[in-house]
């Protein structure tokens, strides 16, 4: 399943997508949890009883601001969360 967390508003689309099929048997040892400086990732049991990563509820409506420090404008070449997720399950839409 592709789970898209985030929103679209007048300024743009801000979604973090997680491919839960790759996430179930994480080959990266849940590295996303520690990689995010804002600790936005957490592990949940989803509706189909699989343990997968998701974005915390509190961050889902503020992604544009929460992720700003890791974006190129803040001097980063790549995102810590997508780098940590070696199977490539985590993607940003912006």
């Amino acid at each position: 399943m592709i789970a898209n967390y985030g929103y679209k508003d007048g300024s743009g689309e801000y979604y973090i997508s997680i491919d839960t099929d790759q996430c179930i048997d994480c080959a990266a040892g849940r590295a996303c949890l520690g990689a995010c400086p804002k600790q936005m990732f957490e592990i949940i049991t989803d509706d189909y009883d699989d343990e997968v990563a998701c974005i915390k509820e509190a961050n889902r409506r503020t992604l544009a601001f929460d992720c700003a420090d890791c974006k190129p404008a803040a001097g980063h070449d790549s995102l810590p969360c997508t780098d940590a997720c070696t199977p490539g399950a985590v993607r940003h839409s912006w």
């Binding site: 399943m1 592709i2 929103y7 979604y15 509706d47 189909y48």
Partner: peptide, 12 residues
């Protein structure tokens, strides 16, 4: 009926 992809907008 199993979800394969979803997105939601509850900010606006």
């Amino acid at each position: 009926g199993k979800v394969t992809n979803f997105l939601m907008n509850d900010k606006c």
